[in-house]
């Protein structure tokens, strides 16, 4: 269900924890699985659970508790904008509005071409860099301006 490379990555995570605590690697394993597959269909969660010898529902609890896991399909690029208060004071909401306008979608929607999904995010711990975006969970973009947003969207559109 997962590539050899992903499994190796998961094995490296498992090795961080005591031998009888494989479940500790579930967050990393779900992350690695999501990176490979784009989102977490139930079969994938079940696979990760059995790989770590834990109950499937326990893995589902984790996958549904932490909000960077996607239990529904998302576009090729998921853009998450922080609109929390400190960011909002420096234009977080305006940045989100600009993205909505540019992409023609609202939060939790995906562009018809399947390229972009827009999400509203909670505090990313980067309030000094506001407005901030998170691209595909792992790449943070700081000090966003309309121009920078244009640039990022253009780059991503080709990827």
């Amino acid at each position: 269900m997962l590539s050899q490379e992903s499994l190796q990555q998961i094995d490296r995570e498992i090795a961080k924890y005591p031998p009888d605590q494989k479940q500790s690697a579930v967050m990393a394993a779900l992350r690695i699985a999501q990176v490979e597959k784009g989102w977490l269909p139930k079969e994938l969660i079940e696979f990760v659970a059995s790989y770590l010898q834990m109950p499937a529902i326990a893995a589902y609890e984790v996958a549904s508790f932490y909000n960077m896991y996607d239990l529904e399909p998302v576009g090729r690029h998921k853009i998450t904008v922080c609109t929390n208060l400190p960011c909002a004071l420096s234009g977080g909401v305006h940045a989100a509005d600009y993205l909505k306008e540019k992409l023609g979608i609202d939060f939790n929607e995906t562009t018809p071409d399947g390229k972009f999904t827009l999400k509203e995010g909670e505090c990313m711990g980067a309030c000094g860099d506001a407005p901030v975006l998170l691209v595909n969970n792992h790449h943070m973009c700081s000090w966003m301006t309309k121009e920078k947003i244009d640039q990022i969207l253009a780059e991503l559109a080709d990827k």
Binding site: K42, A56, E61, S64
Partner: peptide
């Protein structure tokens, strides 16, 4: 473990896998 509490906060739900 056949049941869990999935999701969080007000959205928390008791459910099987």
């Amino acid at each position: 473990m056949e049941l869990g509490q999935a999701f969080r906060g007000e959205h928390a739900e008791i459910m099987p896998f």
